[in-house]
Every structure is written in structure tokens, then in C-alpha cells.
């Protein structure tokens, strides 16, 4: 007889649609190891995902500490974000294998993964992941925050993608990249707090669990828009844009 609590996932096994064996075997690519990346990796590991590649080239800064579970004061200024998360995620589950990739996503081969979770802070990276994921037919779950607002969009091989919902204001925003330290640094106009970040991360990982469990039909295929000021979540239809380059347009 299995001792009560012997299997750390015995409660999750009671959720009928979850395929924990598939979740254990899934190869996840998480892009971005900031606030959202911390929460997403935490939720992935607690949910039973064991093979996670985490991409980020950045070093931990003090302002990260208020929103990042895996970062410590002693890390500030010297430790790479992806390395800190990778080493400490194992304290949540010793079976978790989080592999840091200290790089920019533009230099990463995404093809060796079953699912991609985007936790980035700029449109350029989103467009890159979006187009490659669609080309490779790898499900892509994008999360983003803006103050107390956030969104999650799941991109599958059919249906709308991130670029279908973009316009000239996105292009202008891409052009606003600027440097404050000599590096190619992008500063978001309105940062988010941990509560908004946690909500968005939870929604992202839940989408991943559905997909990996073979229940893509349950996914929010359009844009799930969260407004923490009002306390509302709204599912917005995203029409496929025939001019989108990922849908045969220019």
C-alpha cells in the first residue's frame, strides 16, 4: 500500500484530465528569467514538469528581489538569473532538471522542446519566439504584464498568433529600445507587482498542463486579458490577420 504522502503528486492525480506521466516527460523551454520566469518555473516544477531549459543572459539586480522567489540578496550584481533559478528549483523537487542557457533567445535552438513559455519583456523577442514556434509547430504560451494588467495568449499550429494582434504602436515600441548601462537594455514603462505576475504565471502553466495532457481543446486560444484593477478576466477573440507574415501575408 502506498503510504499517504509518499507520492508528492497523489492529489494532482485526482484531477482527471491531467496526464502526469506526459507532464514529467515534457521538455519545456522557458524564455526569460525575470519576475514572470521565476513564477513560471516555480509553478512548472510544483506541477510536475521535470525537464526545463531556461534562457536568459541577464544578471540579478536589487529591484528583482521584491518579485522573484529564487533570487537572494547575495546574488545581486554577480549571479545570472537563469543559474540562480536552475540551482534553487531543485530544492522544490529534487527530480526537477532545470538547465540554464545563458544566452539571448535569438541564439537558441528551440526545436528540441515540446512546449515554449514566453516570459520576456519586449516585443522583438516575442515576435522571434512566435514565428519560430509556429514554424516548428511547437505550442507557445506567451505571458505579459503591465502594471496591474496582464495577458496570456496560447499559439498553436493553427489559429491566430501574436502578430495577428499587433499594429504600428507595437512597431513604435520596438523602436524605443534604449540603453541605460551600455547594454541593450529595455525598460518597461510600467512594471508589475508580484500579485499580477503570479496570476499570469499561473494561467500560463495551466495552459501548458492542458496542452501536454492532450487537452488543447480546453486552451484559451485567443487573448486572455487580466485587469487587476477591476479584478476581471476577459477572453478576447483574436481574428487571424491575413496580412500577418505567419499566416501568408507580408
Amino acid at each position: 500500500m502506498l503510504r499517504a504522502g509518499a507520492d508528492r503528486f497523489n492529489r494532482m492525480r485526482m484531477i482527471e484530465f491531467l496526464d502526469l506521466d506526459a507532464i514529467h516527460e515534457c521538455r519545456c523551454l522557458v524564455v526569460g528569467a525575470g519576475a514572470l520566469g521565476n513564477e513560471v518555473v516555480k509553478d512548472l516544477v510544483l506541477s510536475g514538469f521535470r525537464y526545463i531549459t531556461l534562457v536568459d543572459h541577464d544578471v540579478i539586480s536589487r529591484s528583482n528581489l521584491s518579485r522573484c522567489l529564487f533570487f537572494r540578496e547575495k546574488d545581486v550584481g554577480s549571479v545570472k538569473k537563469a543559474r540562480a533559478i536552475a540551482s534553487r528549483a531543485r530544492s522544490i523537487d529534487p527530480d526537477a532538471r532545470v538547465r540554464p542557457n545563458i544566452s539571448r533567445i535569438q541564439f537558441v535552438d528551440m526545436s528540441d522542446h515540446d512546449i515554449i513559455l514566453g516570459c520576456v519583456d519586449n516585443i522583438d523577442a516575442r515576435i522571434h519566439i512566435n514565428s519560430h514556434a509556429r514554424f516548428l509547430s511547437i505550442p507557445y504560451i506567451d505571458g505579459a504584464t503591465y502594471g496591474l494588467r496582464g495577458k496570456v495568449q496560447t499559439v498553436l499550429s493553427d489559429g491566430p498568433c501574436l502578430q495577428c494582434a499587433m499594429n504600428r504602436t507595437h512597431v513604435k515600441q520596438m523602436e524605443r529600445h534604449f540603453s541605460c548601462s551600455g547594454d541593450d537594455v529595455f525598460v518597461t514603462p510600467i512594471p508589475s507587482d508580484i500579485t499580477t505576475t503570479a496570476v499570469i504565471a499561473g494561467m500560463m502553466v495551466r495552459e501548458a498542463m492542458k496542452i501536454v495532457s492532450g487537452r488543447s481543446d480546453l486552451c484559451s486560444r485567443d487573448m486572455c486579458y487580466y485587469d487587476g484593477e477591476k479584478g476581471t478576466t476577459e477572453l478576447l477573440d483574436v481574428p487571424v490577420d491575413p496580412t500577418c507574415p505567419n499566416h501568408g501575408g507580408d
Partner: peptide
């Protein structure tokens, strides 16, 4: 890329401008 006409918009419609969140990593 759609026009007002193609979007099915008619006179006196109310459209809402919302920020498209972008942050997550910093």
C-alpha cells in the same frame, strides 16, 4: 489591417483602447 467596414463597425459604436502588456522579465 482591417477597415472600419470589414470590422463590422457601425455609427455610434463604442470601441475600447487597451494597453497590450509587454513586461515580464525585468
Amino acid at each position: 489591417s482591417s477597415t472600419i467596414d470589414e470590422s463590422g463597425i457601425i455609427g455610434n459604436d463604442i470601441l475600447e483602447l487597451i494597453p497590450d502588456p509587454e513586461g515580464g522579465s525585468t
